[in-house]
Write a protein that binds this DNA or RNA. Structure first.
Lengths: 198, 198
DNA sequence: CACTTGCATGCATGCAGCCTGTATGTTTCC
DNA sequence: GGAAACATACAGGCTGCATGCATGCAAGTG
């Protein structure tokens, strides 16, 4: 009689190990922040050793980057799923923002993407991640609204950055207990303001 | 003949040591970030030992908090100094924002207050610091503009938070090489938009 | 009003525990 | 047989604390 040998392909092993590591890391990073989390507790929770971790990730930072990347992708997917693509580009923009806030309501996302992310990975890296995922939606929405003449013509990258920051803070405020309706109304006012101005 | 005995009162000693520590710490935190800076290098640069550090600060975090607090106060002082208090509350708001960006151009401030600050001290703590210093100016300016009927009536705290986030990001963008004029124009457009909207 | 006596404050040194990253083995796949 | 996946062992560094020493300081004493 022989113990179930649990034979797996290398690809499966890698995928499973990486998934276990990022999942465990995510829990700790969310609960205790990146800095206060040690790799020993991560690997213990994931059921592997530190050797496996450093085999798959060059660094503790690289592990965090993987977690953040997945989180940003999940946010973008949430927005994409809810994307209405209505006629009015202004309303589409606002709806997209609502979808973003809904997606960011998932526990831990604000900490990962808005607090620790910039500090651990640097503004540049987190901007690049954002540009590929969530921030892209906003930039495209703004672009469309400008092309349609619905809002004032202004430098796209700049406005996407400034409005994106407002949306990020909005997510943080809601996460901190601030009234969600008020925050959303404020954001809508900001957007509509860009439409009216000469 | 006796060696200059360097006799100092305890108050003076404390002030000098704390100043040396926070100054040295600021340099490293700015150059290498909070996480990558060790207390040994800080105390070496300050010319004291780790014993002195832990005598004056409960924690490495507490030392960072002292640095951030001083930085925020310096920013607020810069704004206060440049405060125009013109007739038009809208223009006053925009001018105040320009003063904020000028103050934030001082090297290291974006990293201390906008990147590491929130991650190390937490959003709550950094908000509280901001509320006492720089953010106060914005909130008061908005309040005045609303009372004067110059901009749309909206929840004050909420709008101060959202606009404050845009200004923070603006400082980061400029620090990152983004064109300052464009960013300032974008911010002005956001503010003026609030004036026009119904 | 000197003076010393006792205590608190400021600071240095040494230690314990933990953590990161790497180097080196061992097992599993291919 | 070789490479990939993983485990184990080790070196260096860092944080926070506990302990020890010196100096300022306030109160009492003669």
């Amino acid at each position: 009689m022989q113990v179930k040998s649990e034979r797996r392909s290398n690809r499966d092993r890698t995928a499973a190990t990486r998934a276990a590591l990022t999942a465990a890391a995510r829990r700790f990073f969310v609960a205790k922040s990146y800095g206060a989390t040690g790799t020993p507790e991560i690997v213990a929770a994931a059921g592997v050793t530190r050797g496996a971790l450093y085999h798959h990730f060059s660094d503790k930072r690289a592990l965090f980057a993987a977690v953040a990347e997945a989180e940003a992708a999940a946010v973008a997917a949430g927005i994409e799923r809810a994307a209405p693509q209505g006629r009015d580009p202004i309303e589409a923009l606002i709806k997209g923002g609502e979808a973003f806030l809904d997606a960011m309501a998932e526990p831990g996302r604000t900490r990962l993407l808005l607090l620790d992310g910039p500090a651990v990975l640097g503004r540049g890296k987190i901007d690049e991640i954002d540009a590929r995922h969530g921030g892209r939606t906003l930039r495209e929405g703004l672009d469309e609204a400008m092309r349609a003449g619905a809002i004032r013509e202004l430098p796209l990258e700049t406005m996407a950055g400034l409005l994106g920051a407002a949306y990020d803070r909005a997510a943080l405020m809601i996460d901190g207990g601030h009234d969600s309706g008020e925050v959303r109304a404020g954001l809508a006012a900001l957007i509509r303001g860009l439409a009216g101005a000469r």
